[in-house]
Amino acid sequence: MQRWIAAIGAALSLMACASTNTPGTDGVYDPLEGWNRGVYGFNNVVDGAVLAPAAHGYRAVTNEPIRDGVSNVLSNLRQPVVFANTVLQGKPGAALGTVGRFLINTTFGIGGVFDIATPSGLPEHKEDFGQTLGVWGVDEGAYLMLPLFGPSNVRDAFGLGVDTALDPLTWAKFDGDTEVRIGRQVVGAVTVREELIEQIETLRDQPEPYIALRRNYTQQRQAAIRDGELDDDPFANLPEFDDYDFDDENEE
């Protein structure tokens, strides 16, 4: 318990630091950039040696319906956590929809293999505790690159821990429970990596992939907190071009 309190205290202090520090030139607060870049390099090595070959192999030996089925099962297993977060975010419609979705897909969808709920008007909601904290107004804190898990920030890393605690499968006791939990993590990692094959190739084609990932992750999370809606005034803070352009035209 004391360790939990210490961890929460450390997380909150990093968040507090974030609110008093200026973000970097690209708008993301990354005081641990040196460390993060090291972890990013490590993750790339692991990815190249294990995850990417597994993802490509998985794609090669399966067809799309099979991969969709696996992805649906994993998504269905997340629904209790999604439900808890919709409640914490005060979204009763999404909460009820998530319960309905879970029940329909678990029964008629044969354990979640088939997503019957979406065409029935119960779309998937993607909520986690990092987003819940964001909805509550908690600052994202310092950008973090987590070993094996990839890009995150203090708020989302803390949220990841809470989501794990909220997940019934974390606590369920049954024969082979440890194997099931490990299997879910492994299959989940390969499935996500397979879904991201093209995106990761695009990322690696960028001039500075670390910066591209850092910006993209941060902006995507902000958009997720807004439930995919554009900012109220998305063009308010666009930079001006006047400092750079039209000098030649004006001189003409």
């Binding site: 030139t25 690209d26 500075e208 910066i211 993209n216 666009l238 071009f241």
Partner: peptide, 27 residues
């Protein structure tokens, strides 16, 4: 002068993204 794509509520402005990356390389 710039083009934006909408990725699930996240507007990605291509020139702004390039600026962030080019300046990081120069720095």
């Amino acid at each position: 002068v710039d083009v934006a794509l909408n990725a699930d509520g996240n507007l990605i402005w291509l020139a702004i993204e390039q600026q962030a990356q080019f300046i990081a390389i120069l720095d």
